[in-house]
């Protein structure tokens, strides 16, 4: 009788787990369709990665039901996991190719690193907040063999694996550390979000030219059309 109960419980647990996984998958596909493709993201590799990575595993347990909503979510320590569209946008804009090596500053939940790891060979990621970094390291190393997590100050970058084809800064500071610019390949791209928590309206792309010159470009995923211009 006890064995039967155990079997039934395991069976029900497995069924409910599968049902839940199906539900999350449906939400994920809907997220890609309505939040990402609908806003103009078309890079196939990016879209596939966004469809594949289970975002709900990268948010705190209490936030799982909100994981696929069109907004940033709190992950503790004053940090957020970016809105899905912003993750997709940042991924597309650095033009990831399979043989690229990328550096991420600010691992946070690990979600952005996971998305990149679906597309490219090697992802190096640094998190300064130790508990967040440890948590992300456990998740990422269990899922991906090509993600390397370091806990420390992102200011110095990770020189021994550079130069990098692209650098994704997810936790921006009010200055761009010179070592990061140094570790960016000529022709490489760095993307940085600018905004207070829960509000990322602006992204900045830093490009290192072949001649060593550096330019920046403001990218505005949400376009604010000034009203007076509209009336003209």
């Amino acid at each position: 009788m006890n064995k039967l109960n155990l079997f039934l419980a395991t069976f029900l647990l497995a069924i409910s787990h599968m049902a839940l996984a199906d539900e999350f998958e449906r939400e994920r596909n809907s997220m890609v369709r309505t939040q990402i493709q609908a806003r103009g993201i078309s890079d196939r590799a990016t879209l596939n990665a966004m469809r594949t990575v289970p975002r709900h595993l990268y948010v705190p347990y209490a936030q799982r039901r909100n994981a696929y909503q069109d907004r940033p979510l709190p992950i503790g320590y004053g940090q957020t996991i970016s809105q899905p569209y912003i993750v997709a946008y940042m991924t597309e804009i650095v033009r990831p190719k399979p043989d690229d090596i990328m550096l991420e500053i600010g691992t946070g939940s690990g979600y952005q690193a996971a998305v990149l790891a679906e597309i490219i060979d090697q992802v190096y990621t640094i998190e300064i907040v130790s508990p967040l970094g440890e948590q992300a390291k456990r998740k990422l190393e269990a899922q991906y063999g090509n993600v390397h997590v370091k806990i420390g100050d992102g200011y110095h970058g990770w020189a021994e694996h550079g130069p990098y084809d692209a650098i994704v800064v997810t936790a921006a500071a009010e200055y761009i550390p010179p070592p990061l610019v140094e570790q960016l390949k000529e022709g490489g791209r760095m993307i940085i979000p600018v905004g207070s928590p829960f509000q990322v309206q602006q992204l900045m792309l830093v490009e290192k030219k072949q001649d060593g010159g550096i330019t920046t470009r403001s990218l505005m995923p949400v376009r604010f059309v000034p009203f007076e211009r509209e009336r003209e």
Partner: peptide, 15 residues
């Protein structure tokens, strides 16, 4: 903790 608000991207020294 470093302080260099909107530092020039041409700066190559230590902050």
């Amino acid at each position: 903790l470093r302080f260099a608000p909107a530092l020039s991207l041409g700066f190559a020294g230590e902050v």
